[in-house]
Amino acid sequence: MFDQKKFVVSHAPFLHDESRISERSYNIMLAALPAVLFGLVHYGIPALGVVSLSISSSIIWEFLMNYVTKRPKSIGDGNAALIGLLFAMLLPATSPWWLVLTGTFVSVVIGKQIFGGIGGNPFNPALIGIAILMVSWKNFFDFDDALLNYDLGFIMVYPLAALKHFGVSAVDSFTISDLLLGRQIGAIGTTFGIGIIAGGIYLIIRGFIRWEISLSFLAGVLITALIFDLYDSTRYAGPFFHLLTGYTLIGAFFLATEDSSSPVNFIPMFIYGAGGGIMTVLIRNIGAHVDGVVFAVILMNIANPLLDKIRPKAIGKGF
């Protein structure tokens, strides 16, 4: 008996499609890269500092939490780095270091780890971080103020703020191609429309995000904005303006699609996405905030568990 070979005994199925969490995280980061690089080119060293600090501090917070909660090290799955990257993309390039550290702490520790880590978070962690900062240190999110010292050769006003404070006439000068090509100011990774859209399409084609959510989110924004525009085009900006400014695109492709805080069933994905899009425009047009994406997505995150109860009947049910 002693010379008997030992075989691996495990349970079916004996094949796996070889997907893994890290592959997903790194591909999402890759898809975000065009938009991030564009931001770095525009805003230079300060932006690089924010991005680097954000990613590294997220990883460190995650590592510390793994240590404190005595759980297996999870930084290898790339999710903390992804949260850090997305968080940095939402910040102005001039954010001070303590703001970044606080934000990533909130994102990783409060947004994710206290719920038990990856898969347990009811909200998008990066958005929780941003939301807390926006409420606590509002001034840092005044992009006109934050980017005062930059002159990049195009209109140096934050489109959504101009819209809010001065009305439609103030944003007439933004053309769609300007917005698409990133000739607008804003957070580090949110201004380069084409880049974000390309990244989003890549993720959809490769199946790393759920297309139902992205498309319905965009449709929600477009249709709601269109209705407002038709109702009174002197007060409300057109649908494409809303689509290409602020956090809309990054929201549709990178934020609303976060796995754990969004639905997986077919119909709920559409309601969730469309709801987020509609809320975004409502907040922008009749709410108090300049941009609505952050709170719209968080609101839909809250609705997610309820929405995801709408699901097809399993086979053999209903006898």
Binding site: K5, F7, S10, F14, L15
Partner: peptide, 20 residues
């Protein structure tokens, strides 16, 4: 066969691994 190989009786999705 070598150590740590796997032998499966039945199909790859529903079969069972055997230890000998």
């Amino acid at each position: 066969l070598n150590e740590k190989d796997r032998i499966i009786a039945g199909g790859p999705m529903t079969g069972s691994a055997v230890f000998s």
